[in-house]
Design a protein around this nucleic acid. Structure first.
Length: 256
DNA sequence: ATGGTTGGGGACCAA
């Protein structure tokens, strides 16, 4: 089973690249963040022609998430339960692969802006609600998306420069640890303990060329799936294209 | 500094 995850920073702008990546890798599941696509404009016919169904929730201007899959699915949940939230950042569903059911959780975590801001409080509130949801969804599950958290110093090109800022703060890293402790494993870090594995580079200051990146996009597996983790790739070639997203796609391959 | 959205200029959001 192949799972692809990508913050596209506008699906409209990146549509040809998404079609290209689906054609090239034939993932079973594609999770997108920052589609910036209202539901009535979602290009589901494009994916249907490729043999995929689309499950999506968006809004004007910002946010928006989608799961695109060729697998049978059910039990769709839009938005985190018991969280008062008008931002479209969360979709969860169950898929069936070779007669087994798996839970696919796709989140676009809030950025947080600054540690002392209201947006950071919102980020913490959002993650706390997610943790509650995960307590009952931590078996045969994949939790993926743009976490907007670089979990350790190794996930950051310059930890000293990135102190007391969002994405690297202790508060956010503790949230990430809490999520792992609720029954998940960081599939990339499990396979590659010592490689940074950046997934995001700022558009500015030639950050990609200079490899000034962060690892903030993740695919976590519930612990019962550890022995089935096969391969993980950061598809940096898609960050090299013209008009790229500032995030690279990530691709997890399981043994089943 | 860069890029996307929106709306028709400039502000806001992103990380």
């Amino acid at each position: 089973m192949k799972i692809l995850c990508w913050n596209v920073n506008s699906l409209k702008v990146r549509l040809d690249q998404v079609v290209e990546i689906i054609t090239k890798f034939s993932p079973d599941i594609i999770s997108l963040q920052e589609t910036k696509s209202q539901d009535e404009n979602f290009p589901e016919i494009i994916f249907k022609d490729l043999g995929y169904e689309s499950i999506f929730i968006g809004q004007k201007t910002f946010n928006g998430v989608a799961v695109i899959t060729k697998l049978p699915y059910k039990n769709i949940v839009f938005n985190i339960p018991n969280l008062n939230d008008d931002q479209k950042r969360f979709v969860c569903l169950d898929v069936t692969f070779e007669d087994k059911n798996f839970t696919i959780i796709n989140g676009y975590f809030p950025n947080g802006q600054a540690l002392d801001s209201a947006k950071f409080q919102y980020k913490s509130r959002w993650i706390e609600a997610l943790k509650v949801f995960l307590q009952k969804n931590n078996t045969d599950s994949f939790l993926m998306g743009d976490f907007n958290i670089a979990p350790k110093d190794i996930d950051c090109h310059d930890p000293q420069k990135w102190t007391d800022t969002v994405l690297t703060s202790d508060v956010e890293r503790n949230h990430f640890e809490d999520i792992l402790n609720s029954g998940f494993i960081d599939s990339y870090r499990y396979l590659y303990p010592d490689d940074p594995g950046f997934t995001w580079w700022d558009y500015r200051m030639a950050a990609f060329r200079r490899n000034l990146g962060l690892r903030i996009d993740h695919i976590l597996c519930s612990k019962n799936l550890i022995s089935s983790i096969k391969n993980f790739e950061v598809l940096k070639d898609f960050r090299k294209l013209e008009r790229p997203s500032d995030h690279a796609p990530i691709l997890l391959t399981m043994k089943f």
